[in-house]
Amino acid sequence: MKLATLKSHGRDGQEGRDGKLVVVNRSLTHYVDVPTIALTLQAALDNWQLLAPSLEGVYSRLNGGEEKNCKVFQANECMAPLPRAYQWVDGSAYVHYLELLAKVRTGQVPADLWTDPHIYQGGSDKMIGAHSGIEVISEEAGVDFEAEIAVITDDVPMHVSSEQAPQHIRLISLVNDVTLRHLIPDEFAKGYGFLQSKPATAFSPVVITPDELGDAWRENKVHLPLISTLNGKLFGRPNSGMDMTFDFAELIVHTAKTRQLTAGTIIGSGTVSNQDSSVGSSCIAERRMLEIFARGEATTEFMKFGDHVRIEMLDSTGESVFGAIDQYVIEHAISEEEVRYTSAFE
């Protein structure tokens, strides 16, 4: 099943914060509104066992051409699947990438790198759609994309077992976990981790149930290449199922070790990375690290205003699975209110 959250407007004409849930057909060409089943994706997740069969029925009829009220699907009308999520945590399941980082930063690799997942808790009050701009104040922040995969869970009990954890994976999404690289050193120096260096995260137009992947979903991993292009040129296509040290079940177990997870929790894989560097990278930082190891210096620049990144996954027939994350870097427009606020303190 494929689901999306489309922009919606209230009676006052204002855009709703949480959008409206729709069912999208397999080829991503048409959709159906489902207000009688669930108004939002969060509402569907809150009552998944009860509502999922009805959503599946709509999906089946839509793919069979039996839904008369379907409309043309346009990805640029999508919000993030969960425009404001109860929880967003991001792991770094591809330890090869973490190992490169550790070698560049300190020259030493932590002993627990391969045995204990590294996960941070990100801001989830404002998630953005696949066609939203990467809005930043300055290019000097070191703007980078990070192509990832994420799962969305239902309610997960505290201290869930590795055998039970996969049963709580309800949906899968692509992610662009934007990072401002030049802000990271000062934040890490405080010993508290990411905050300002992690602006709004973007998600694919469509989320899918694991069964949509067929044989490509196994071992709690997605075994397909994740394709990233930067300004129209292929940047990387590492296989998401390869070199994933910690699968999604293990990430769930780690996250729920000391607390329950509520329905709508999003857990990211971290930057998809393969040890075979010939397949390219899923972020600029990794390419820069490889350049340092190969030639002694990094030559690839971080993103500038107007730069364009596209992140997509194709199935074995070449069809887009989630639709594409398609974003441009844009400069934050300072509002009159911000100008007045700043002037008051000058």
Rank of each mutant, 00 (worst) to 15 (best):
N239T: 09
T229R: 03
D247E: 06
L226H: 07
G214V: 13
E212H: 14
F248N: 03
D247V: 01
L230A: 09
V222S: 06
A249M: 10
F246A: 03
T245L: 13
G214L: 13
E250M: 14
H223T: 11
P225K: 02
D243M: 00
D215G: 01
G236W: 04
N231H: 03
P225N: 04
S228H: 04
I252Y: 00
L226S: 04
W217F: 15
H223I: 11
D211H: 13
K221Q: 15
S228W: 09
I227V: 11
D215F: 02
E212A: 14
D211S: 14
N231L: 03
F235Y: 12
T245W: 07
E250D: 10
A216P: 01
M244P: 00
R218D: 06
F248L: 13
F246H: 03
W217C: 04
W217N: 03
T245F: 05
K221V: 14
E212P: 07
P238M: 13
V222C: 10
A249N: 09
L230S: 05
L213M: 14
D247C: 07
N220H: 09
P225S: 06
T229N: 06
L213F: 15
K221M: 15
K221W: 11
F246G: 00
G241D: 12
K221N: 12
M242V: 08
M242N: 05
H223S: 10
A216C: 14
F246T: 00
E212G: 11
F246C: 01
L224F: 12
G241L: 13
G214Q: 09
F235T: 01
P238Q: 13
D247K: 01
F246Q: 00
R237S: 14
R237E: 15
H223G: 02
E212R: 11
D211E: 15
I252H: 01
L224Q: 05
W217T: 07
M244D: 01
L234V: 07
L226W: 09
N220S: 11
R218K: 14
E219C: 09
